[in-house]
Design a protein around this nucleic acid. Structure first.
Lengths: 337, 337
DNA sequence: ATGTACTAGGGAAACGTTTACTGTCTATCG
DNA sequence: CGATAGACAGTAAACGTTTCCCTAGTACAT
């Protein structure tokens, strides 16, 4: 059984494809009589018609599909993807998730193979791809909104300033009496670890302390756990551990507990991003919570506006992560006002 | 600046669109001379050509895009999505994630508006949508592989049998000396909680014990936490808690610890699914680990075969979840062989 | 010379829509 | 009665590919 087309409906109703199209898209509503409109709608339903979106996209140049670019879909990124699905729900848009590590040479990629044709892109912390994309000139076809720590002068941007949160966390650890506040980070050159490291280093300068970097290879839970084991064995453990994200904070947490180190008495611990599980540990983990809801809403709002008015002025919004102090870093009772 | 088309290349090279198409798709490789081929390739690169995928899809009827259907993207589902991205990486396919709660009435939805045109669908525990989809007849256009606990006689299926794992967990809790083994589940009628509950109930029959169901409204961490609070306050706490998934296990864990209940001494706890964080708690949480890698590989293999040979025999594979015993349920030292 | 086979490439239809333009009919007005 | 306007619907071109089928040319065998 062939798939139904607009023609089949036209034939069944005894009208022309144009009329069917007008009715089904609602584009010429006032130009079609009520009776014809009803007949067409009914027949479409009966025949089980569903439009061929490729054909529609071909002629309209719009797909009603946007892409989320991310380098992975774990933890924080999964949270964003999930919220974004919620945000898009009332809209007519669907979301393609594109794994941007897929294509090692983005520049070449964009020159040769188009990515899936979307009307617009929300790029979550994927600076390499965005750069190549913009360089390829494809940005005119499908605009990019960059979300996260990185942005470019040519694109709309919704950012989250974690710098101030990290600074706050560093001061918080100092206030809790930590003497050696180390930063558990990812490999240099990996984003978004770099900007967080810079914020840490700046905070340490202001605290007039020596920065101390601990680097995990893969920035995974497991890496962090083993790194901590090493540190404890060498007897070289700092007493304050500011982790660049929650995954490594969780790994560090486990590593410390396995070695019998007390949290926060021996080591005070903080993470970053605000993934759900941090709040459920025996010592809930202090973290810098990203405003995911706001981020997603703002990004989609931005993109929508840009799609409606391609030439509207550049949009930029900066949100703030907020330090949420929990047991893992709280040595003294906080006295209420 | 207009977007380049195959025509522009043809004109620049002094050949016909047909030839360009043959070269660029590699479809008529032996039919085109090397010099022409090179010229076309070079020109395409220079002009920054990228094919219009809508047009291609229109004529070929293929989009090289598959959909992942899921009701949410959190926790276990996010793991699957993430692994699936890895699995698809070497392929030419992209993945659309469709939020299947988006459309309350799927039957009507499939009759009226096509979902984004994909070549195939991997449906992760989303039985309602699959049912309507199949009923609408659209299954002939884009085949479904159902992944997870549910399946239909008309679709390929990669399942994970968690029943035996849950049975194992129940027996394990009994063996650990639990007297009252309760099941923390979701609302009746919600999937995939139902099948897990059935497995629990069957296990309890075999253990000759009374089943005891604790129901969370939203099956969220927070719900489970509060439910435990209530239970402790009422002094009505079982000493074995078999949770239907890891989220509620984590919530229960926190609830218990907040109330000063010891794990596993006072309450032994098990989860299900194997999400990463379970291993990082002070008492790592015993869970039934789903073979996510295998699941994703198998599902994609299935779908690929079905796309290549639409009429190949029905495929079905059953994987097994494996009970991973950790501290949260281990009261006695296990003696090695 | 003629026939055959192979190579390189072109012509044009088709895919299923949308939409700008063009008609036809009826009703109303002068 | 003729002209004009408005309501409704149809015609056909376009969107950018792919692909079936055909042609022209060359080489070789008969």
């Amino acid at each position: 059984m062939r798939r139904m087309t607009i023609r089949d409906i036209a034939q069944a109703v005894g009208t022309s494809p144009a009329t069917v199209s007008k009715v089904l898209t609602g584009r010429g509503d006032s130009l079609i009589s009520d009776t014809t409109r009803q007949k067409i709608r009914d027949t479409a339903r009966e025949l089980g018609y569903s439009p061929n979106l490729a054909a529609r996209a071909l002629v309209t140049g719009r797909t009603h599909c946007i892409a989320l670019w991310a380098e992975t879909l774990a933890d924080f990124h999964a949270m964003v993807a999930n919220v974004l699905l919620d945000v898009l729900r009332p809209s007519r848009y669907e979301m393609v998730i594109t794994d941007v590590v897929k294509h090692p040479d983005w520049h070449a990629y964009f020159q040769r193979n188009a990515p899936w044709p979307v009307d617009g892109i929300i790029a979550l912390d994927s600076p390499h791809s965005v750069e190549s994309y913009l360089a390829s000139g494809a940005g005119r076809n499908a605009p990019v909104v960059s979300a996260g720590a990185y942005f470019w002068p040519e694109t709309d941007h919704v950012g989250v300033d974690l710098g101030s949160g990290i600074r706050e966390a560093a001061f918080h650890l100092a206030e809790q009496g930590c003497v050696r506040i180390a930063h558990l980070t990812c490999q240099h050159g990996m984003r978004p670890g770099d900007s967080r490291r810079l914020a840490y280093e700046a905070a340490m300068r202001d605290l007039e302390r020596e920065p101390e970097l601990l680097v995990t290879e893969q920035s995974s839970r497991e890496d962090a756990r083993l790194l901590i084991h090493d540190l404890v064995r060498r007897g070289d453990l700092p007493d304050g551990l500011l982790c660049f994200n929650d995954e490594v904070a969780i790994g560090a947490y486990r590593g410390l507990r396995e070695m019998g180190v007390r949290i926060p008495e021996d080591v005070a611990l903080t993470g970053c991003d605000g993934i759900a599980d941090t709040a459920y540990f025996d010592q809930p983990i202090t973290t810098i919570v990203q405003p995911v809801d706001e981020l997603c809403h703002a990004a989609w709002q931005c993109l929508q506006r840009r799609l409606d008015e391609p030439d509207c002025p550049l949009q930029s919004r900066m949100l703030k992560g907020s330090l949420t102090v929990r047991g893992s870093s709280l040595r003294r009772e906080v006295h209420g006002p």
